[in-house]
Design a protein around this nucleic acid. Sequence first.
DNA 1: GCGCAAAATTGCGTGCACGCAAAAATATGC
DNA 2: GCATATTTTTGCGTGCACGCAATTTTGCGC
Lengths: 203, 203
Amino acid sequence: MRERKKQATREALRTAALRLALERGPDNVRVDDIAEAAGVSPRTYNNYFSSREQAIVAAVTADRAAHLAATVAARPADVGLSDAVIDAVVGLYTSSDDHRRDALLMITSNPALRACYVDVVTTIEDPLADAIAERHPEIDLLTAHVLSACVGAAAKVALRQWLRSVSGPATPSGLVVPSGSLPDIIRAALTPLVPALDAAAGS
Amino acid sequence: MRERKKQATREALRTAALRLALERGPDNVRVDDIAEAAGVSPRTYNNYFSSREQAIVAAVTADRAAHLAATVAARPADVGLSDAVIDAVVGLYTSSDDHRRDALLMITSNPALRACYVDVVTTIEDPLADAIAERHPEIDLLTAHVLSACVGAAAKVALRQWLRSVSGPATPSGLVVPSGSLPDIIRAALTPLVPALDAAAGS
DNA sequence: GCGCAAAATTGCGTGCACGCAAAAATATGC
DNA sequence: GCATATTTTTGCGTGCACGCAATTTTGCGC
C-alpha cells in the first residue's frame, strides 16, 4: 500500500507536468508549478525525478521498459534472438496514440526535452539484458549486458537521426537522411547488430 | 592564435582543477576556486566545461578521441576492422602513467567523478565513426555511427564492471566478476561485437 | 598606429538539483 | 488503542549551470 501511494504520486507528477507543459509551453513551467499541481512539495518532486524535463517525458514513455521485456519474452522460442529484439524495440516506437501525438510534437520541438527523450532509451537496457539472459541461458551475463547496451546505443543513434530529419531542416552533416518513418530508421540502425545478436545466440 | 589561447585556458583549467582536487579532496573544491586558480572568471569556467567534474576528469582523459582515431587509422589495411578497433580502444586504457595513477584512484573513489569518467567514453564515438568510414568507404554512414556507438556502449559496460570490482567489495548482482585487469575486461566486453564489425567490413 | 568587426570574457539574475536533519505519515507488535 | 520502528515528506541552505547583455580582447585592412 505504501508502494501504491508512491506510484500514485509519480503518476500525478507526470500528468501534471505534461498538462502544464502543453498548456503554457515547456519553458513557462517551473518545477514549483508541477509540484503544486500535484499537491506535493517542490523538494518531493526531486525525490521522484531528478530533472525538470524527466517528468514531462516520463508521461509519454512510462513503462517502456516493462513493455519491452514482456514483448521479447513473449516471442516464440523458435524465432531468432535478433528478430525478437528488433521487433520488440521497433514496437516501442510504432504507437500513434492520439493524445501522445501533440506531446511528442512538443518534445521534438524543445532541445532539452529532446535530449531527455533520447536519454530515456537507457532505461530499457537492464530489463532487456534480463530478458536476453532468460531467453538464452547459455549467454553469459556480461555479453547480455553488452548486447543490450548496444541495442540502446543503436536506438539512440536512430532517434537522433530522426529528430534531425523532423526538426533540423538544414543537413550540414554528410549523413544520408532517408527521412523515413521512425520505425524504419530504428530497424535500419539495428540491422548492423544482427550478426552480433545471432552469433551470441549460437544460431 | 585565438585558438591557441583557448586551448591554453582549457589546459589551465584542467590542470588547476586536478591539482586542487588532489590537494584538498574533490569535495572541497568549488568551481570558483578552479576558476581563480586558472586566472579566469567563474562564468568563463562554464564556457569550457559544463560541470564541475568535467575539468578534473578531462585532465586525465584529454585527447583520447584524437588518439583513438589516429590509432585506428594507423593499423595496416590488412588487419580486420574488429582487430583494429578493439586494439585501439584497449590501448586507451592500458597506460599506467605515474602521476595519473593517484588521479585515477581519486576518480574511482568518488561517485560523481566515476560517473563523469564513464561518460567521457562518449567522446570517442564521433571520431571513431569517421575513422571507420575512412577505413571502409563501402560502409554507409549510419552503420558507421551505429557501430561506433556500440563500441562506446560496450566500453561503458566494461568500465562500470571494472569500477564495481575495484570500489564495490560486495557483489549483490549475479554478474560474474572476473576481477581481471581493465584491458582484459574491455576486450571481453568488445568481443561480442566482433561479428557485427567484421560483417559490416565485408570480411 | 587606427578604427572596426568578430569573438571571447565577464557580471548578473534565475531556476534548479540535492545533502541534511527535522517533522509527518505509515506499518508492526502487543 | 497504543507505543514504536521505518519510511516518506518537507524546509532550508548551498553550489551550480546557463541565458543574456554589456564589456573587453583579438584579428585585420589600411
